[in-house]
Design a protein around this nucleic acid. Structure first.
Length: 361
DNA sequence: AAGCGCGCATCAGAAAAGCA
DNA sequence: TGCTTTTCTGATGCGCGCTT
């Protein structure tokens, strides 16, 4: 399913009529909102607001901004049919959060709703009247520019997060390539995902190859190369050594899982801000060296880069890979299950649930 | 059963703090 | 220094227990 992005949100707001003063979602709020300017593709959005009850008017109001960063934070939290509460997403922050909430609710794909709130006190569970939420229902759009409530009588929100992922401390060696767009925090994120993949593999009973130049990363006070389940040298893997020319190609691939000494469940490239082409090219190099060997070629990338992955993976020269897309959120979901549920007995079909096929052939 | 009023949650927006 | 983000504040109105 396509990921909702700031681009979608800002585009939808840009289509709202500008010649109107809008009310807030909560009818008790007396203020009025006017859209001044919408910057495509991802904001910011400029608005004015004033309170007629205090004698204010359009002319006396000043232009305020809904930042692009704020829009992204909200857009990232949008999932089909799942109510979201902006105060929670934004931690009660941002002055204009109620304005953004209102603008979203005015667009045809968003409804406001009041799902029940699950209350758990000392083991006693009940459902209370809930807070205001927005719900994304793109398949049943309402009238443009009209705040519309969706009745959700059977829906209740558990306010305990379903999952949250924490990472142990990482120390990156000084010699790791840092340059261009790859600032230290970007590299750290890339490495977190790589380590999550390794730990998933460990839980599933796979041995993991980590790219040659990433072996020096310190995890839990030890370099990766010394961690259990990490393959020290590719030459000893008989799957790889059986194919002349495979080893040099495999050496710089971010992450490869090996099962027993007969299977290779996945070859994965983590693509963080760098284009996905380099990863596909590296994997293509490996495939060319061992064309008959059955495995999954997987691009691991942020949720918002899905479109880019689909586009690149479908280019003629990469079609033979039949590449999969493994989103960061899917990695973290699987990592969460692995670390909290002692997951085992995993089948190939189960892995396919997380690694989406993106090629059209 | 209806009315009253205290306490509390919610809400938008002001104020303060952070940041480049 | 000016914009963004976080924290605080005051207004509003509802829930619920108490009184009539």
């Amino acid at each position: 399913m396509a990921k909702y992005t700031a681009y979608n949100l800002v585009r939808a707001v840009s289509l709202l009529p500008r010649n109107t003063n809008y009310n807030y979602v909560n009818p008790r709020t007396p203020g009025l909102i006017h859209i001044e300017n919408v910057n495509l593709p991802a904001g910011p959005i400029q608005i004015r607001r004033w309170n007629p009850r205090k004698g204010e008017n359009y002319v006396g109001s000043s232009v305020e901004s809904i930042s692009s960063e704020m829009i992204w934070r909200v857009a990232n939290a949008v999932n089909l049919g799942e109510p979201i509460n902006l105060d929670r997403i934004l931690g009660g922050s941002y002055n204009t959060r109620s304005v953004l909430e209102t603008l979203m609710a005015l667009t045809p794909e968003f409804y406001y709703c009041y799902p029940g709130r699950i209350k758990d006190i000392d083991g006693h569970s009940s459902i209370e009247h809930g807070h205001k939420h927005l719900i994304w229902l793109p398949d049943e759009p309402h009238e443009q520019g009209v705040l519309t409530e969706k009745q959700v009588p059977n829906m209740a929100i558990s306010e305990i997060p379903l999952q949250s992922v924490t990472y142990d401390n990482l120390i990156l060696p000084d010699n790791m390539a840092v340059g261009g767009d790859m600032n230290i925090e970007v590299v750290r994120r890339h490495t977190q995902i790589q380590i999550a993949l390794y730990l998933i593999g460990l839980q599933l009973g796979y041995r993991t190859w980590i790219a040659q130049n990433d072996k020096g990363i310190i995890y839990k006070d030890k370099p990766l190369i010394e961690q259990p389940g990490i393959i020290p040298a590719l030459g000893t893997e008989n799957i790889i050594s059986a194919f002349p020319g495979a080893e040099p190609s495999a050496r710089f691939i971010d992450c490869i899982w090996f099962q027993n000494h007969r299977f290779m469940p996945a070859v994965m490239e983590v693509e963080h801000t760098t284009g996905v082409t380099s990863g596909l090219t590296r994997m293509k190099g490996l495939q060319d060296a061992m064309p008959a060997f059955n495995t999954r070629y997987v691009i691991v990338a942020p949720d918002n880069d899905r479109e880019k992955v689909v586009e690149e993976a479908n280019r003629q020269q990469f079609l033979s890979l039949d590449a999969r897309y493994f989103s960061y959120s899917s990695v973290e979901e699987l990592y969460y299950i692995c670390t909290h549920r002692n997951l085992h007995g995993v089948t190939q079909e189960f892995l396919d649930c997380y690694m989406e096929k993106v090629c059209v052939n």
